[in-house]
Nucleic acid binder design. Structure first.
Length: 807
DNA sequence: GACTAGCGGGG
DNA sequence: GTGTACGCTAGTC
């Protein structure tokens, strides 16, 4: 009988641990696996034999809580310890709760390994099991029945979990709601259907009115039960919604059970940064943690990880918003306000559901890949994900897992950064006829091609040239493949295979979507390995390995640049893994031939690729502002245009909303004039024209509005900046302003200081031309124009051609 | 700059 | 639960 593995934990029966699996066979069900014992390894200290150490281990006694713990047995196993074969003592314990105490005692016998892995995860690793895998139970699979073997049996790729998103609204007359006093007023939910539960009649078809707040809470619990929810989803509900529900239920004496066994609500535990809420028999995911992870890896660009911002970025549309400080007023207000609140509430749950459907496929692929449960994977950092995978891979290769560093060691590592990538800064100017070449997956391919690994480092078996010697002189073995390179190679090979398959599929098909998510997961993990080598808490930390990777990177990019110059190209720019060449009138085929010749000399799977040819580009030089900035690498700042007129912009602040539209628009027009027509004179003319328009008052007022978000309560601002001044004026005029509100204001002619002159967009009558010329348009275009030889006075000289030397 | 403290999301 | 984690940035000197 096959079932899909969802998660694993354990229960205790007669003093022994019994692994308990959460499975899906239509519905969620449990299966039990007795007989799996916790264990750890002891590496005999020098001078002691394995047998002596084994005997010593067997005589260990330790106090674990109220019990006296002792090993149940110990055997000898051969493992690779940092690349060397050694015989280790494997010490089995009666119960996971005994391990902590016994391992401390065991340290007297030698170095202890793998004594700090969660028991259930140990089970999954040792049995080659991953969540979302089919497993064969070897019997009829009746719930609760025990079984003696589990066989991995392929992945359940089409798995659909019954997912419910929910959200609460709370009465908040004092700003921050107080769970002992302020009631939950609405609760929204969304799966295939959606609705709002409340206790005031609202008169909307999706709203169900019950009699009391208690009934709102109880109706929700009933809903979860009746729908037999498998995956409950909220947004920051670990910190807010779930505890609030629990606290209100307690205050009201209402029932509150979410667990599948009907008895429990949820339990939360601190997990580093995040809390994690567990609901018995179901999966619970807080999308806030997921969104934060996506922000961390660059998959989300929004700075604020609010549901509204995340939704807007993922779907390119705004969700409904209300002023949160005014929620209590809407609840107390007229029927229309109440309706608006219900609509907002519903939209929260709907938005969560859409976000979940969009982001969870990737998290599920990550879970499959690293072999950890969905809740474990959601919100884990990339370092943690790589570690999870590495435990599994180390086990497969019969290698012992290195121990985690202590706090002081981690701090020491963090305080010792390595030299980063090479950057050749461009000379500012306009250039034509360009080719962009870059190394495909540079750092991963360096690691694989040079077998960079803590165990292959310092090779003595490969004589002379046979080893890979990094530019820093570190030697890496060329015979025995290291764990890191071998895992990385497998991941990249797998991703290449998937990419090939994707080419043959319809991008809208379900299969394509599934493969895309897996390919994304592989990409995320592959790209995390370099960081993992230098991540201060990494078990596989190796400064020599990490610094060798960047040293090789600098070597290859510089070599490529040197060869390009040799081949007659002009190297305009180079950064980390890419170079921009000017063809100097030579055919594009020459650039391709050059690329081919470079590739012929590259080792292993390193490969230089053509990103694209470009007709024209503008580069803005950026001087390194500090030693630290130079180390990190100067920001890419250039814009390119290709044959088809597509513009590629890097590093320019074109889209920031805290500039007025006239400033942003002019900056864009200037850049386009340069890119499309190659004319800095045209660009200068545009600037002069805009300055004239501003002076003559021809620029519409709405182009002068500057938007800023109020980041904290207005009375908390010590300095009265223009946006704060405008916000205060808006508030005085009866407009709601709270944290998060977008304030639009215009700098007017009236007043002395900038703050005096700032007027809310709604009430502004004119604009101060001087301010918009000097503080908006000129600074934004000068970012570009300065580098092309203009200074501000050139652009302010209306109509006149400025005297410019050649540059 | 160099360093520390505090916050993130939610209503 | 054999366990534990971050990173930015405003504010200060």
């Amino acid at each position: 009988m096959r079932a899909t593995l969802i998660d694993a934990d354990y229960i205790t029966r007669k003093g022994k641990a019994v692994i308990r699996l959460l499975l899906k066979r239509g519905r969620f069900t449990r299966a039990y696996f007795p007989g799996f014992e916790p264990y750890f390894y002891v590496s005999p200290r020098p001078g002691s034999s394995a047998e002596e150490t084994r005997a010593g281990a067997l005589s260990l006694r330790a106090q674990a809580g109220s019990e006296t713990a002792s090993p149940v047995r110990a055997d000898l196993v051969e493992k690779l310890v940092f690349g060397e074969k050694r015989v280790l003592v494997r010490v089995f314990c009666m119960h996971p709760g005994h391990v902590r105490a016994l391992r401390e005692k065991a340290r007297s016998l030698g170095e202890v390994f793998e004594a700090d892995i969660v028991f259930a995860r140990r089970f999954l690793i040792d049995n080659g099991l991953s969540p979302f895998q089919f497993i064969d139970l070897g019997h009829d699979g009746k719930s609760g029945k025990e079984f003696g073997s589990v066989v991995p049996d392929g992945f359940n790729d089409g798995l659909k979990l019954r997912t419910l998103a929910f959200d609460i609204e709370v009465y908040n007359p004092r700003g921050v709601p107080r769970p002992d006093k302020d009631p939950i007023i609405m609760l929204s939910y969304a799966d295939e259907e959606s609705g709002v539960i409340t206790y005031k009649p609202v008169g909307l078809p999706f709203v169900k009115a019950v009699r009391s707040e208690s009934e709102v809470i109880e109706s929700f619990c009933r809903l979860v039960k009746e729908k037999d929810v498998e995956l409950l989803v909220g947004y920051n509900d670990v910190e807010f919604d779930l505890p609030y529900l629990r606290d209100r239920a307690k205050a009201l004496g209402a029932g509150f059970s979410l667990g599948r066994d009907g008895s429990s609500g949820f339990s939360s535990q601190q997990r580093g940064l995040f809390k994690h809420a567990k609901i018995k028999g179901r999966i619970h995911i807080d999308l806030y943690a997921v969104a934060k992870f996506l922000g961390l890896i660059g998959a989300l660009k929004t700075k604020r990880i609010t549901l509204a911002d995340v939704y807007a970025e993922l779907f390119g549309e705004e969700k409904k918003k209300v002023d949160k400080m005014g929620i209590w007023g809407m609840w107390d207000g007229p029927q229309e306000e109440l309706k608006a609140l219900a609509e907002y509430s519903l939209d929260d749950a709907l938005a969560e559901k859409k976000v979940a459907d969009k982001v969870l496929p990737l998290e599920m692929e990550l879970a499959k890949l690293v072999g950890a449960s969905l809740p474990d994977v959601c919100g884990a950092t990339t370092g943690q994900l790589v570690e999870m995978l590495m435990w599994r891979e180390a086990h497969r290769q019969n290698r012992v897992v290195p121990n985690k560093p202590g706090d002081e060691e981690a701090a020491r590592r963090a305080a010792s950064p390595v030299q980063g990538a090479f950057v050749k800064l461009p000379e500012a100017g306009i250039y034509e006829d360009l080719a962009v070449l870059d190394f495909r997956g540079m750092y991963p391919s360096i690691i694989i091609s040079h077998n960079i690994d803590m165990d292959t480092l310092g090779c003595k078996c490969c004589p002379g040239e046979a080893a890979s010697v990094s530019p820093l002189g570190h030697r890496f073995c060329s015979k025995a493949k290291g764990l890191v390179p071998s895992v990385l190679e497998r991941l990249i090979d797998e991703r290449d295979r998937l990419k090939k398959r994707m080419k043959a599929l319809d991008p809208d098909s379900q299969e394509y979507g599934a493969i895309f998510a897996r390919s994304q997961a592989l990409k995320i993990i592959s790209n995390s390995f370099y960081g993992f080598l230098l991540y201060p808490r990494s078990r596989w930390y190796s400064r020599p390995c990490g610094e060798s990777v960047t040293a090789y990177g600098r070597h290859y990019i510089q070599e490529t640049m040197r060869k390009a110059e040799e081949a007659g190209f002009k190297v305009l720019y180079g950064d980390t893994d890419s170079v921009i060449l000017q063809l100097n009138g030579r055919p594009r085929a020459d650039a391709l031939a050059f690329m081919k010749s470079v590739n012929a000399s590259l080792p292993g799977r390193m490969e230089l690729e053509l990103e694209s040819f470009y007709v024209r580009g503008v580069f803005v030089g950026k001087k390194a502002q500090s030693a630290k900035a130079a180390e990190v690498g100067a920001k890419k700042k250039y814009a390119l245009i290709d044959d088809a007129g597509r513009v590629k912009i890097r590093g320019f602040e074109l889209v920031r909303r805290d500039w007025s539209r006239i400033a942003r628009k002019t900056q864009r027009r200037v850049l386009e004039a340069i890119l499309k027509e190659g004319s800095k004179e045209k660009a200068a003319a545009i600037v002069r024209e805009v300055i004239a328009d501003l002076k003559e008052g021809r620029v519409p007022l709405e182009e002068c509005v500057i938007y800023t978000q109020v980041r904290k309560r207005l009375d908390n601002y010590a300095v009265k900046s223009p946006e704060v001044a405008a916000a205060l004026k808006a508030k005085a005029a009866g407009i709601q302003v709270e944290v998060g509100t977008m304030v639009g204001y215009v700098i007017t002619r009236k007043g002395k200081t900038i703050s005096d002159k700032a007027e809310p967009a709604e009430s502004a009558k004119d604009y101060d031309p001087n301010y918009y010329i000097e503080n908006q348009v000129l600074p934004s275009v000068m970012k570009i124009m300065k580098e092309l030889g203009y200074d501000e006075s050139d652009l302010k000289m209306e109509g006149k051609q400025s005297a410019l030397g050649e540059w």
